[in-house]
């Protein structure tokens, strides 16, 4: 077997003392890496362990339940209080806490649309450490998240503005709820991805 002469001349009194590790004479990684490039990698849940898939499913169910509560809140808010938000301007960055620069920030949903406290609590938790979580991501991942959140924030503002002009519009309400759902999904992904060893 290969190994240094010092190792090979060493005397041992048990087979357990033999070296378990023997370094290959060549670095095999370049050949391995070349072959990895030809293998389509499993993405998303397909590449996760059964426990991870179950946890992911549970998180999605929880998120779906929260969004359902939001939808009910929106529906009730719109049905019972049709004029509450009428003419109201969409929240600005300053109103949302003055986050710097290109607003990632947003993120305080208007009470008239979102009335479920569990949703607000969950969302507030995710938003609270968003900057720290983003800092833990690689620059490309951070850029991807930032772009997504900016797009979501803009969509929310546009929808809220449109709802200000047409408070009873069910389609706009549904779109707004979907946007909240997208936002929650991104925030959850960031939260999960910034854990050690994970990625977007």
């Amino acid at each position: 077997m290969s190994g240094s002469s010092n190792t090979e001349n060493r005397k041992v009194g048990s087979l357990r003392e033999l070296p378990q590790s023997i370094e290959p004479p060549h670095d095999l990684w370049p050949r391995i890496e070349a072959q990895l490039g030809e293998i389509p990698h499993e993405a998303g849940a397909a590449g996760k362990s059964p426990q991870q898939r179950r946890a992911l499913r549970a998180r999605w169910l929880a998120a779906a339940a929260m969004v359902a509560c939001v939808a009910v809140g929106v529906w009730i808010g719109r049905s019972l209080l049709p004029g509450v938000s009428g003419g109201g301007s969409p929240p600005t960055s300053a109103q949302n806490g003055g986050h710097e620069g290109r607003s990632l920030a947003p993120l305080v949903p208007r009470q008239v649309y979102v009335s479920d406290p569990r949703y607000e609590h969950q969302r507030a938790d995710l938003v609270r450490d968003l900057q720290a979580r983003l800092a833990a991501l690689s620059p490309p991942e951070r850029a991807k998240v930032t772009t997504s959140l900016e797009a979501i924030e803009k969509a929310k503002k546009d929808l809220e503005e449109a709802l200000g002009h047409d408070p009873g519009n069910a389609l706009l309400q549904e779109l707004l709820v979907n946007t909240y759902q997208d936002e929650m999904r991104v925030l959850t992904d960031v939260h999960e991805a910034s854990d050690p060893g994970r990625g977007i």
């Binding site: 070296p19 023997i22 095999l28 993405a43 994970r198």
Partner: peptide
């Protein structure tokens, strides 16, 4: 698992000796 080959390379470096042995 998420497709990071650098991470897999580090796993390779860690275990190649025992596997090759």
């Amino acid at each position: 698992r998420s497709g990071d080959r650098r991470a897999f390379e580090r796993l390779y470096r860690e275990h190649a000796g025992r596997v090759y042995g």
